[in-house]
Design a protein around this nucleic acid. Structure first.
Length: 415
RNA sequence: CGGGGCGUAGCAUAAUGGUAGUGUUCACGGUUUGGGACCGUGCGGCCCGGGUUCGAUUCCCGGCGCCCCGACCA
């Protein structure tokens, strides 16, 4: 994409109503626009990051036999009344609205109830199971206090997967496989080192649920970790019992601030019993389905990455989720030869599937480099009189600043 | 929801009971040209409602919005 056509502008200063680093950087670089507290729109660069994150997650979900769907945002009141989760006393984040034709609907803050109910259409026999479905959906939650930029919003994009299994064994197998899939996701998007599978409060059926917690300075959760023993425990469940369970003492653990980027949860058979989702086994017995739910906060991930993987100059996107592969910057100052060389490189790279943001604007070098650092594409390629004279292109790694001179074929294999 | 803070131009920031200055962005002209370059000209603003006052952006009351701490967080 030619940057001269990109409608978004960068800013030197962050708006005063944003204090969180993620929102400051994402707004300054033109990735997102704030609509209201806790609600952000995604601009071209931001949307590209979201789509990259989605495709990494999608690949791992598909590898785990997940089938992608898209459920509605509007949800039936009656469904949630069945499980006693419509009332504001039980769920305090509901957005609700009245239908002009009468009745009331809810805006989905979760999809466990609707999807379980929907599966009644498709699950009748043990032959129909297991089923694994997922979606990327905007969740709407009437949070009392939105905060920390895109980290805790009232509207956000979430990947939610649901597993429907015949029995506990089948459920556990998938659940454990999903832990592996999640680890792959976080590792692929550059958060693997600092993301921990964390034991957290369970529900009525299990002692623990599992959260994926990423270490971050302004995190809203506190967990206790021991890297050597590969143990992470949410402070909500840190007690003597838990400690002895894991055969550690408090002194073995280090306290860190984190944010929850993923959560996997075992519902057992309760949800399906409540919503009357049963199947017939081989003997013709009516058996309740096992439900598991697996979430990843996609927009929150964007914030975590922007915040964690950044320096004083701007964002440093990992290549797996960067909005473009290469930031091509021409320093022609009106020199036709330089301009032509950059144009040609842009065209060749684009034709060969390299995603390039081409800074073809007639603005100062300083402006271009500052914007480039702020936007944070992993590789910058500079075309100037200097590089033209050498017959090569200058390649700069955003993360390290490492610079070398390369030819076109090297850049073609840059993805 | 409890506590605290803040609403001035697209963004950032100042002063003021007598209608507002600066930086940046933007437009135009000129000089520059490997790190947000310089000079000049120009466009553009006091959150909403009520009160006090001859006069309110300023003081008072209410509302709305935003941020932070806490509580909450499937």
């Amino acid at each position: 994409m030619r940057q001269s056509k990109l409608f978004t502008k960068t800013r030197k200063e962050a708006p005063k109503d944003e204090v969180s680093k993620n929102a400051e950087l994402l707004i300054r670089a033109g990735f997102i626009h704030k609509e209201m507290a806790g609600v952000y729109s995604f601009l071209p660069l931001g949307l590209r990051v979201i789509e990259k994150l989605k495709s990494v997650i999608r690949e791992e979900m598909n590898s785990s036999n997940g089938q992608e769907i898209l459920m509605s945002t509007l949800q039936r009141k009656e469904l949630w009344e069945v499980t006693n989760r419509w009332g504001d006393e039980t769920v305090d984040v509901w957005f609700k609205s009245a239908l002009n034709s009468g009745g009331e609907v809810g805006f989905g803050w979760s999809h466990e109830e609707p999807i379980t109910y929907m599966m009644k259409d498709h699950i009748a026999s043990f032959r129909d199971l297991p089923i694994f479905v997922y979606q990327f959906q905007n969740k709407l939650r009437n949070e009392l206090r939105a905060k920390s930029g895109v980290m805790r919003g009232r509207e956000f994009i979430m990947k939610d997967m649901y597993s429907f299994s015949r029995d506990q064994k089948e459920h556990d197998e998938y659940y454990n496989g999903m832990i592996e899939a999640y680890n792959k996701v976080f590792s692929r998007i550059g958060l693997g080192e600092d993301t921990f599978l964390t034991f957290a409060p369970g529900g009525a059926f299990t002692e623990f649920s599992h959260e994926f917690q990423t270490v971050i300075d302004n995190g809203e959760d506190t967990i206790y970790i021991n890297k050597e023993k590969n143990i992470a425990i949410n402070d909500e469940v840190l007690n003597e019992d838990t400690l002895s369970n894991f055969n550690v003492t408090r002194d073995d653990l280090r306290e860190v601030k984190t944010t929850e980027v993923g959560n996997i949860f075992n519902f057992g058979t309760q949800k399906c019993k409540e919503l009357n989702l049963f199947y017939n086994d081989k003997e013709g017995n009516k058996v309740p389905v096992w439900l598991g739910s697996y979430g990843i906060g996609v927009t929150r991930l964007m914030g975590v990455i922007a915040e964690k993987l950044s320096d004083e100059k701007g964002i440093v996107w990992p290549s797996s989720v960067a909005p473009f592969d290469i930031h091509l910057v021409e320093i022609s100052n009106g020199d036709e030869e330089v301009k032509k060389s950059a144009d040609e490189l842009y065209s060749t790279l684009s034709k060969n599937g390299v995603e390039v943001l081409y800074d073809d604007r007639s603005t100062s070098v300083g402006q271009k480099f500052a914007d480039s650092d702020l936007i944070g594409i992993p590789i910058r390629v500079v075309v100037s009189k200097k590089t033209l004279a050498e017959g090569k292109f200058e390649r700069v790694e955003r993360k390290s600043g490492a610079t070398d001179m390369v030819d076109e074929s090297t850049l073609l294999s840059q993805t």
